[in-house]
Design a protein around this nucleic acid. Structure first.
Length: 698
DNA sequence: CAGTGAGCGAGCTTCCGCTTGACTT
């Protein structure tokens, strides 16, 4: 028996179909060893020797694999062909007590899950690439050192429970700095001038763009007086067409999905969070409907390209076929081509033909199917017309422009509809004189850069090669769980006071760590390790020396507990000692009556008694009024009938619904209650809050 | 599932990147 180990159980299941009874296919379920969670696990005094453990979660599986390995003739490590996959293969040999140099240990890689790719891989095994493994160890150890030494610094200097890391701290920084830009922003007024013109065969609109041969810049016309002055002068001008340029414009389809772009489209088109998108993608993957959903490669297998052709002809007709398959190049230099792009596993299955439990899965499948199919369809063709208009007054000559854009052939847009401006012009002739109908000056103001939403933040992080497909969604979660940032009503990120303070401390005292380029620089050095040009211990040593020196200095330099000081209020503490919540008993048992102050904690500002620690009375700053249902009525608690329903937040940043009378009434629900008494065994319907806004990733 | 603050100095918080189930009143 030959034992083949891959990373994902779904992949194992698929592969089993291709290989005979001589092969047993098992999965590692990701990493099997890691640094311990409870302590640093790195011996800094002895060349950064890592101390790996097998996490409890992996123990059962490792033991099972060990038994199988003992019986196997050959052990074939078929983990992904990237840095982490190579490390998983090596960790497997260590955890299973195998000698990687023994003849019965083989390392194979394949990029598509097909029988021929697999057979080919089995014929060309290699050894584990220890240099690549070492690059992964360096990455892991560096992240641990940064995370586990910087976080405690924040506990001491700000508030316990905070965190810092190579990825999350840059994500936070982007959000905070964007907020600062918005605060600093001052809107500038500017004007544009459009003109309604009449030709022999019809009317059209042209925009003023040049005066005396000079282009008008964006802020070129600053106020109403300037605009009116130009308008008056235009009124007495002769309008004439001086050029008509016609050309054909072709538009290419977008590349197939990778994790980041799937999450962005999920956000834009379906209004889902990255986490939700990944959850439904996972289900589609497990049901064999799509390829692997954590990938940064836009590569498409030959088989899928052939299948696309057949499906396109069947669904859309011959004129939507292209001569040669369209090949996409992966943009990121650091992309690790372990997988294909995200595409339908069987393109012949149209969205209408699949069966799923949740209709949301079908929506996501349709998005993936359409995107993939569109990549193998022809360019869309537009007829674009650009018309130049001159206007001569006594002392000035003006130039205006009008653009027409007509779709001639939809091509890939048939499968992947996109918004574009279609604009028709009347039939026009060169040197044709025009009649002026109306001059329309319009006032505008420059706008601040938009706050990040999930889609644009992922896009930005990816552009700096920060984070990986498997971590985009968790990174967005962690900065919210820490209460560093919150989503506003438009689902865009705003930093909290604590988030702003954490970022200030990190950028002021550890600029090298939160440098946007830090990851890119690290990756360059990791490449050297992977190529055997540098020892990983040296890379870590070069980084850690200065980092540790600086950290020591900052422990002395920066004062402790630098959270904002309490603000006084007019409110008086109503605590009687007896009524305080069970977890925080107050010392006194009469009416407290001391003034309340506003303090800042890990979860933002809250109202606290100035008599602390004797009086532990603390309240949320937000008014304790119930939420409303669709009819605008407050929802009564269905359990006690007295209290109202409020939306609260768990420690893990998940929202739930509870009763205002807590702790006297312990009603709680994940879903928004209707206020009706619940029938036995009946599920509360899930309420979806959808906002009307077209998200744009910048 | 119902945050938060200080300190007796108990025990604990924390990283990034692989992968899925457990946990759901």
């Amino acid at each position: 028996m030959n034992l083949v180990i891959v990373e994902s159980p779904t992949k194992a299941k698929t592969i089993s179909k291709f290989l005979g009874k001589k092969y047993k296919i098992e999965s590692s379920y990701g990493h099997v060893r890691d640094l311990p969670k409870s302590k640093l696990g790195i011996d800094i005094e002895h060349n950064f020797e890592p101390h790996y453990i097998i996490p409890v979660r992996a123990r059962k599986n490792v033991n099972a694999l060990k038994k199988l390995a003992a019986k196997a003739d050959k052990i074939i490590l078929a983990t992904d062909e990237d840095r982490e996959g190579e490390a998983i293969a090596w960790h497997l040999t260590q955890a299973l007590g195998l000698d990687p140099n023994k003849n019965n240990i083989e390392r194979i890689v394949f990029h598509e899950i097909t029988e021929s790719a697999l057979q080919h891989a089995l014929l060309s095994p290699r050894n584990i690439d220890i240099n690549r493994v070492n690059a992964q160890q360096a990455r892991r150890i560096l992240d641990r050192l940064v995370g586990y030494e910087l976080s405690p610094f924040l506990w001491k200097k700000i508030i316990r429970g905070l965190s810092a890391g190579r990825v999350q701290s840059v994500a936070l920084r982007l959000i905070v700095e964007r907020e600062e830009e918005i605060k600093k922003f001052k809107a500038d007024e500017y004007w544009t001038i459009d003109v309604d013109l009449e030709a022999k065969k019809g009317k059209f609109i042209a925009s003023l763009n040049k005066i005396n041969g000079e282009s008008i810049t964006k802020l070129g016309i600053k106020n109403k007086e300037e605009a009116d002055k130009i308008g008056d002068s235009l009124k007495n001008s002769e309008f004439k067409i001086n050029e008509i340029i016609k050309k054909e414009v072709r538009k290419n389809p977008l590349p197939p999905f990778i994790t980041s772009t799937l999450q962005q489209e999920g956000s834009k088109k379906l209004y889902w969070s990255a986490k939700q998108t990944m959850m439904f993608a996972q289900r589609l993957y497990e049901n064999g409907l799509i390829t692997y959903m954590r990938t940064d490669s836009v590569n498409l297998s030959q088989g899928s390209l052939d299948a696309a052709r057949v499906t396109i002809e069947k669904e859309f007709g011959k004129k939507y076929l292209i001569d040669e398959p369209r090949i996409f190049k992966t943009k990121s230099r650091l992309a690790q081509e372990a997988h294909e792009a995200i595409r339908p596993a069987d393109p012949a299955k149209t969205p209408d033909e699949i069966t799923v439990e949740d209709p949301k899965e079908k929506k996501l499948y349709e998005l993936i199917w359409r995107r993939f199919i569109s990549t193998q369809m022809p360019q869309a063709i537009f007829d674009a017309t650009s018309v130049g208009v001159t206007a001569e007054s006594k002392d000035k000559n003006y130039e205006l422009r009008a653009n027409g854009n007509i779709l001639k052939f939809d091509g890939f847009l048939k499968a992947w509809p996109q918004k574009f401006e279609e604009h028709e012009l009347p039939e026009l002739k060169e040197n044709e004189t025009l009649k002026l109908d109306e001059i329309k000056p319009e006032q505008h103001f420059t706008e601040p850069p938009p706050r990040y939403n999930e889609a644009s933040l992922i896009k930005t992080l990816e552009s700096f090669d920060i984070g990986r497909p498997s971590t985009y969604a968790p990174t967005l979660s962690v900065i919210q769980t820490r209460n560093y940032v919150q989503k506003n009503e438009a689902r865009r990120f705003e930093p909290t006071e604590i988030g702003t303070l954490v970022n200030k401390v990190l950028t002021e005292h550890f600029p090298q760590i939160v440098d946007i380029q830090f990851t890119a620089k690290m990756e360059e050095q990791l490449d050297n390790v992977a190529e055997g040009k540098e020892k990983w211990q040296r890379l870590i040593g070069d980084f850690y020396g200065p980092f540790a020196d600086n950290l020591k200095k900052k422990y002395e330099e920066v004062p402790d507990k630098i959270a904002p000081p309490p603000e006084t209020t007019d409110e008086v503490c109503d605590c009687t000692g007896k009524n305080s919540s069970p977890k925080s008993k107050c010392v006194h048992d009469d009416l407290c009556g001391k003034p309340m102050v506003i303090k800042t904690g890990r979860f933002g500002k809250f109202l606290a008694c100035s008599g602390f620690p004797n009086c532990k009375n603390a309240k949320s700053l937000k008014k304790n009024v119930g939420i409303e249902n669709e009819k605008g009525e407050r929802i009564k608690c269905s359990k006690c009938g007295e209290g109202e329903i409020v939306r609260k937040r768990t420690k893990r940043a998940r929202f739930f619904y509870g009763c205002t009378r807590y702790p006297d009434c312990d009603f709680a629900s994940w879903t928004k209650p209707t206020g009706e008494k619940k029938e036995e065994g009946e599920e509360e319907p899930e309420v979806e809050t959808k906002e009307e806004n077209e998200e744009t990733a910048e």
